[in-house]
Design a binder for these strands. Sequence first.
DNA 1: CTGAAAGCGCTTACAG
DNA 2: CTGAAAGCGCTTACAG
Lengths: 328, 328
Amino acid sequence: MTVTIGEIAKLAGVAKSTVSRYLNGGPIGDKTSRKIEQVINETGYVPNTFARSLKAKKTNIIGTIVPRLNSYATSQTLIGIDEELKARGYQLIISNTSQDLKREIESIYSLANQKVAGIILLATKVTERHLQVFADVKVPVLLVGQQRDECYSLIHDDEAAGYEIGKYVTGQGHKNIVYLGVTEEDIAVGVKRKKGFKRATEKEEDCEIHYVETSFSLKEAVHIFPQLYQTYHPTAIVCATDNIALGIMKAAQMEGLTIPRDLSITGFGGYDITEIIHPGITTAQFFYQEAGVLAANSIVKLVHQEEVEKLTISGFELIIRESVDKIR
Amino acid sequence: MTVTIGEIAKLAGVAKSTVSRYLNGGPIGDKTSRKIEQVINETGYVPNTFARSLKAKKTNIIGTIVPRLNSYATSQTLIGIDEELKARGYQLIISNTSQDLKREIESIYSLANQKVAGIILLATKVTERHLQVFADVKVPVLLVGQQRDECYSLIHDDEAAGYEIGKYVTGQGHKNIVYLGVTEEDIAVGVKRKKGFKRATEKEEDCEIHYVETSFSLKEAVHIFPQLYQTYHPTAIVCATDNIALGIMKAAQMEGLTIPRDLSITGFGGYDITEIIHPGITTAQFFYQEAGVLAANSIVKLVHQEEVEKLTISGFELIIRESVDKIR
DNA sequence: CTGAAAGCGCTTACAG
DNA sequence: CTGAAAGCGCTTACAG
């Protein structure tokens, strides 16, 4: 039998409203407070979330929408969010959309309907429809990974990372480089990383750079490698994600090339696996877990109507491993 | 302004209870039904979950407790669970315990308190305390990954997988093998895989097998490799998980060994990465996502008090790649 | 600081 | 098949 606030009130000899106040930190007399505390401890009373939410019309739940569950970046970010939310007395609900844009929109409505206090969206692409829906539900929303002026956003420093990678690779003497990027529909990955890289390398002398576009798929990277290599014969391929770098490396090794002697490769992300494989991949590591903590902090502030920077930028670190050779 | 059942009733010219019946599939007259349907469509009415749960004292939420979020097996299993639950009109709540046993227990209570309809536990170790708590909360529980006679369980066929790996490695002519296992506290990984392997290999003639124990950590595998290799000089190392195999491979390559020419390596799990790296790792692949679907099915049946096998066994497939050499 | 009362939005016997 | 009424467990003005 589960115990209710009414029974606590009876046992403590007070009114239900008083117990409610005790629970919610209202003004309570010392003796009353102690009495209620004692009864609650004895009975192991836990308030019924539904009744509370029904009446109060709000919850202490934060919804996080993710495009996919099986991604390093997603997992790490979620861990950070989860830890921080727990520490602040909030609960996390994860909604997976399997990269389905329609399901993303539905999830926002569904979370709003569940009266979540706030929503964190790990975004890949933010459309007009998204902005419209954000305005429609009156729940605070935080975008992670992409930036829009209309929203609160938390992004990784993709452009600076691109710049550092560019500086490093040219600094190692490479003069014939392929930049293997992705669609510009993805602002963070497709536009900013490339932009940073371009800025770092455009003043290089006698340096030939070819910009090629591929998908996010590791398999496609494997697939296009032979043709790509034959066409440009680069000494280095700068890949827009670690996944792409992994694909290129696999394909190169299958062709009998030795990394980095015959070909240098870099990635972006700092996924665990870039360290695990041999040779380790030089990459720009983002701090996903830390970003998750920042995101949780921001959304809680937004829920409390506290002030939050419109844009938060999470840092990165250039991790130099063995996949880039020095050329002279 | 959010619309309530009362307004729908008024607009449709019926009683609230009739609308409620319509919503829950009770007996309804044809005309009434159509009228209500129309009003609901016009208003975009969505029932309030809290009110419903408060009154009905149950939800259509399934809680899944996971030891960690950043694991391939976990992610894949969750994807399977999520898909299937969605298809069946249930919602998934994920509770991450960060491998903290105390938090695991707390999570069970917390989910039960939220009146989830059922709980799926991706278990690593099942203690007496667990069983006690399962009995305490009256919510149906399904164990995934470990088996206990006291519970409904879904496991992977670890023993058969161990057997197949054993047969395959000895079949390739290896006569000096190290089996690199983990603690026997983990029944599935520590006991069953080894048991199957042992059964497959114990009748081999002139075959020397050394059983060594390590942790689940990839780093530790890297660390112990030199000593291990020097001590036994095996031609093959059978690792109890893909992670351990990855660590051994990395360490071996750092020592200048070529896989599989100088050393053969196998894993268990079938993680994506075993295919991505070069050479690809021969491994016993479990069907995590499929297992997730099975798990979701079972828990829904349990919720409906339908009959479910006490133990479900999910299959595996031996994936032969390049990491094992043929010896003569 | 405390209590009595109303009400959040639904479901569920109970009548008809 | 349908309606009126009670009640799920809490919170929140309103008095005092």
